[in-house]
Design a protein around this nucleic acid. Sequence first.
DNA 1: TCTGGGGTCCTAGGACCC
DNA 2: TCTGGGGTCCTAGGACCC
Length: 420
Amino acid sequence: MFALVDCNNFFVSCERAFQPELEGRPVVVLSNNDGCVVARSNESKAMGIKMGTPFFKVKYLVDEGKLFVRSSNYSLYGDLSARVMSILSEAAPKLEVYSIDEAFMDMDGIADDVVGQVCSSLVRKVRKWVGIPVSVGIAQTKTLCKVANHFAKKYKGYRGVCVIDSDEKMHKALSLTPVSDVWGIGWRWAPKLEAQGIRTALDFVGRPVGWVRDRMGITGVRTWSELQGIRMVEEEKERTRQSICTSRSFADTISDYDEVSLRVSDFAAKCAQKLRKDGTAARTVGLFVHTNRFRDDQQQYFPSASIRLEVPASSTPEIVGAALKALRMVWREGYAYKRAGVIVSDIVPGDSIQQSLFGFDPAARKRDDSISRVMDMVNTSGKNVLRLGTQRPGHYADGIRREFCSKLYSTSWNELLEVK
DNA sequence: TCTGGGGTCCTAGGACCC
DNA sequence: TCTGGGGTCCTAGGACCC
């Protein structure tokens, strides 16, 4: 069996762990720049507030005292997540951390009839030790675990743990699950399936495999099989990421080239830092900028460009240099830019860099790598103070709106600026 | 006025090869 | 000039996840 442990309303629960006055109240947590609602308490869900709602549409509720709001505080959430995961890893033979707030446990080796008890005690332990409420769904496949997890969250009677361990339970669960709630069926497929008379997960598995294959391809067949207890979703292997992206919307639009290039330098430096943390290097550095897509009264421009390096790099000067070069390639005056990002790809392990014969200066590489190493030492041990001259000065004003941010209850000031 | 950020996988089509 | 068949690699776009 697999067990999926999912933290309930995770970001809200993190805020509540240190601000008990938020308990039992309608709370939302906002995305960067206080843009959208990205987490909701049960009470705010009950008020009809939807995931992704722009904050300005619900701000009046805050002003009227009917809704409580927090800016996102990723260093707090990352820290609490690590604490939860560490508890889980002691209980399960194998733990696969799937996202900041959920993990699959492979319960292989634990007798089926005690898996439920093991998970129930985990739920209590995590709540008591970290202060975060979690729910567990147990089943033969990961997709069925998701289904079980929905029930564990939805019905109080389960006390946070729901097991699907028989054909009867599976049948019952699928019949009560709208097809749009199935893991792997997104907002594009759900209406198409409903138009075909498929309302529930049970309706979906009732279709022949050929029908699914023809319309939805191999990914559809995987979901279809998983819902019937046939394992199709592979174990996620530890491997180097294929790409790393650092992007942000700006609190206000920017039209000045120098100002945009400061931001781009920051994003590129952050990508380089992530590469070094992973012990990898990237061969391609991509850059994009966007005008504000919601303003149909304004001229739109969504260019991107990428630079292929002679030799994969992870040093701040090299990655920043390439990103700025790409920015110069696409830059056009006269637009109000709202967002930019840097994406590094073609990632290889750092120790397997093949040197090019041409256009490569080993001395310069050595210097850039040394510079980066020193930057990492200083920047991870204290405040983020060592930067290139092209980066934005001042570690406190990063141009991101964070009007409702809670304190750094469990981490240092520096980590607030850690870009997730 | 105000609308997030970071990933992965699959597929179709084009370029190119024999 | 037109004719067939098979294969690989790359890219862009679509779809999904959190």
